[in-house]
Design a protein around this nucleic acid. Structure first.
Lengths: 245, 245
DNA sequence: TAGATTGTTAATCGATTAACAATC
DNA sequence: TAGATTGTTAATCGATTAACAATC
């Protein structure tokens, strides 16, 4: 009986969701391990791996232990094994078929990105409403009319759709995608699209990223001004306090 | 004397750095306030603003109070005023001149992004080593030989450089940029570039983003497997425990 | 075996949320 | 004035770091 209860507790504990912070570090591990592997490095300690990535050894061990026990006391981690485990965690063990909606500059640029295919993400089609584009092949990828989106996705077991249309049309496209077998949307339109909960969304909001850079550039000046302002306010308060008793 | 000490303490407190989490929310506030402004909404409460963005009212107030006291008790925030304040915080009150290094598909796509210019980020030049591109104008932006990079930046008061070259050449470009008056680098190459500390860097690592999406798609299956694994391990431990006294 | 390094628990740190006095 | 909502302090929650027993 005691054991049943313990089991239930464990199951509950296990279901605790992995935090996005951890997830976003996984690609870094994957890349670093890939480089070590290519350099024929056989083993790596949490200490070393952390050093290369700017993480603490503790964090590396905590991160990895969310997914299993991949290391060996007194030895460290086998690079090849860990690389494969991380790849599996990231879902890179299966091929992914992708389509791009929007064959404009961004869509074309993405269609030409060699890195995707080399990691098992294959772009099989693009879609556009512009009749001057449909029928063409861009970087080897056929461009279809948007009308055919659902059909092509469902026929070809496409699991990822890339939204590269203007923000005005993004939700419309998302709605069509919601009726297909798609599992994830990589959204480059600067809006928050609404989709059913079984479809995962990852946003690339470039303008947000640029604004963040702008903030960083501006930060020093901003803080100087802020301190001046606050100390002025502080002086005023001082005066008020002095006038009391 | 008492007051001097208090002042010092305050100054110290103020210098505490704003966390990246806060900074990355600022563009969201900016966008939302911009929409409200366009809809002629005059005032907004932290409650309402939070609701629209999926933040708590508390978080909205905490975030904004990092930078000043923009609201009014019993009223809320004036939309126009707050919009302008957030814009100032993000450094959008001054024009930014940008150059793109790498006139390939990505560089061209970025050169054609209307959103940048409409927010005060003006792309004045592109650079490439390909002699078939240099001398051309792409989406109205002149393409120069990479040799001229430093000169053009320094002559035109360019403050942001966009790296859109293959990863093999990214550090080289970053090194050249480090010798110019540039203040920030928006890096699209999938490596961590090294630059002097006065130059701010914002990375857009697309492959990391795609891998994160892949993880999300894969997560459910992954967790199921994980729970099975762990409960199996747990059963083994149970047996061992049972064998003891 | 001794040394190394893991997996994991405990302590610390930081960010988010709640509460409430101040005040418009 | 009464009601509303801020700015800010305190409580909570979650993520990171430290510590250490387990074990290769």
């Amino acid at each position: 009986m005691q054991i049943r209860i313990l089991g239930d507790i464990m199951a509950e504990e296990e279901i605790k969701k992995i935090s996005l912070a951890v997830i976003r570090r996984l690609p870094k591990y994957h890349k670093c391990l890939g480089e070590l592997l290519r350099n024929n490095v056989e083993k790596v300690s949490s200490q070393e791996l952390g050093q290369m990535l700017g993480f603490t050894a503790s964090q590396v061990r905590q991160d990895l232990n969310n997914f299993g026990e991949f290391g060996q006391q007194g030895y460290g981690y086998n690079v090849e094994q860990l690389y494969n485990e991380v790849a599996k965690i990231l879902g890179l063990h299966t091929e992914h078929k992708m389509v791009i909606i929007g064959a404009g500059n961004l869509g074309q640029a993405l269609a030409n990105y060699k890195d995707f295919e080399s990691h098992g993400f294959k772009i099989i089609a693009m879609f556009d409403i512009n009749p001057r584009l449909t029928g063409l092949r861009i970087h080897g990828v056929p461009v279809y009319d948007l009308e055919e989106l659902s059909y092509v996705i469902n026929e070809n077991n496409v699991d990822i759709a890339i939204i590269a249309v203007p923000k005005e049309n993004a939700q419309q496209v998302a709605d069509v995608l919601s009726g297909t077998i798609i599992k994830g949307i990589w959204n480059f339109a600067p809006i928050e699209i609404k989709v059913p909960p079984h479809i995962m969304v990852e946003n690339v909001h470039l303008i947000d990223s640029l604004f963040t850079l702008s903030y960083k550039i501006n930060e020093n000046k901003l803080m100087e001004r802020l301190i001046k302002q606050k100390s002025k306010r502080f002086e005023v308060k001082e005066k008020i306090i002095k006038k009391l008793p």
